Computed example of a mutant assay.
Amino acid sequence: MVFTIIIIALVALIVIHHATLAEEVAVFAALAACFALIVALLRNRIASPPKTATPYTVLTVGAHPDDLEIACGGTLARLADEGHKIHAIVMSDGCAGGDNSVRPTEARNGAATMGLEKIEIHSLTDTRLEDHNMEMVDIIEAKINELKPDLILTHSSHDQHQDHKAVHFAVLRAARKQPSILCFESPSVTSEFNPQLFIDITNYIDIKIHAVQDHRDQAGKRYLRWDRLKGMANFRGAQGKLELAEGFEIVRLKDSIAGLK
């Protein structure tokens, strides 16, 4: 496929010598598209690991439409590529921080970019999720009973955002019998956030950035900038002796899951 595209590009370069200005512009646009496709194909080839022989089910729970992409988008994309089944719950439609007529759609786009199986978006009160504690517990318990997940990812308790903390404690209550729970890092975590597990996302940083950029309603916020995302991945990668990584606090982790790095 890549070889065919290269041949097409070379032919286009030859054609340019006998083209009008308008035709040259069209050819250069086509060449740019060809090279973008080559980059995408090569990235996908590099970033697609062999499918696991023992796939597991992952449930990830966030408070707002962009939380999952920012906090663990690289990990979710990597797990999906490896053949694991990723399901997501988002508790609010983000109306307090943006346009809730578009944010759920952007969350679905982000989920598709990361390769999630399904995302479920609720409309509990943004910034007041603590008022919906029992509703959140019921939602999470129902999903746990449906999926029987092997691993759950959610917010840390070491977070300044009240919604993130409310979701964390709702997950702990609903998942009290679950063997593996990890807490991801949002931009509002406190200095007490202390990851013990670092997951390699070296080949997935571009996918994470793309998934975050699917949230166009939030464009312009500093913590969504690609350099911020890559900078944090560099920092956690250095801590975990990896190139780029996402860090997680361990609530508890079953041995069969602990091999994920």
Rank of each mutant, 00 (worst) to 15 (best):
S191F: 09
F235L: 15
N133S: 14
L172F: 08
S188P: 01
T57P: 01
N194I: 08
H161T: 02
L242W: 05
A47I: 06
L37S: 14
P50G: 08
H64N: 07
L260H: 13
D93L: 03
I14T: 15
S188I: 01
R216P: 04
H84Q: 03
P65L: 05
A19T: 11
R222K: 13
F248V: 05
I89E: 03
F198C: 07
F169P: 00
Y204Q: 10
V212E: 01
R225H: 15
A32N: 11
R78E: 05
I152P: 00
E69K: 04
R228C: 12
H17V: 12
L197E: 03
D138G: 09
G74A: 02
I152D: 01
D150S: 15
E135Y: 06
V27F: 09
C34K: 06
L253Q: 10
H155Y: 09
K241M: 09
K241T: 09
F169T: 08
D206Y: 06
E192V: 07
H155C: 08
L129M: 08
K118N: 12
D66W: 00
I16C: 06
R252N: 15
E135H: 12
G247P: 02
L13C: 11
G74Q: 00
D138T: 14
L147M: 11
H158M: 11
Q160W: 13
K85H: 15
L229Y: 11
E141Y: 06
K261C: 09
E130D: 14
S92E: 00
L68F: 03
P55W: 02
I144F: 06
V137K: 10
L129S: 04
H158Y: 12
L21D: 13
I5Y: 03
N203R: 15
R176C: 12
R252F: 11
T20M: 06
I250Y: 08
K118D: 10
D227R: 07
K221C: 02
R228W: 10
H87E: 03
G247Y: 03
P50S: 08
P55L: 01
T75V: 09
A166P: 04
M232G: 06
C34I: 12
L31G: 00
S156D: 04
V189Y: 01
H215I: 02
A33Q: 07
T75I: 03
V212P: 03
N100D: 15
D163E: 02
A111C: 07
A88T: 01
D217T: 08
I207P: 01
E246G: 09
R176E: 15
A170D: 00
S256N: 11
V90D: 01
K85V: 13
S191L: 09
E120D: 15
V27I: 15
A63C: 05
K165A: 14
V167P: 03
I46M: 14
A9P: 03
A111M: 05
N194E: 13
P187A: 04
A112L: 12
A33Y: 07
H18A: 11
D150P: 07
A219N: 04
Q239G: 07
I152V: 07
W226K: 11
A29T: 12
T202G: 02
T4G: 13
P104K: 01
I89N: 04
A111Q: 05
Q178L: 13
V212H: 01
L41C: 05
H168M: 03
A174G: 10
Y56L: 14
C183R: 02
I199C: 09
H18I: 13
H64R: 07
V39H: 14
K254S: 14
K143G: 00
G98M: 00
C72K: 04
W226M: 04
I14W: 13
M134L: 15
L21P: 08
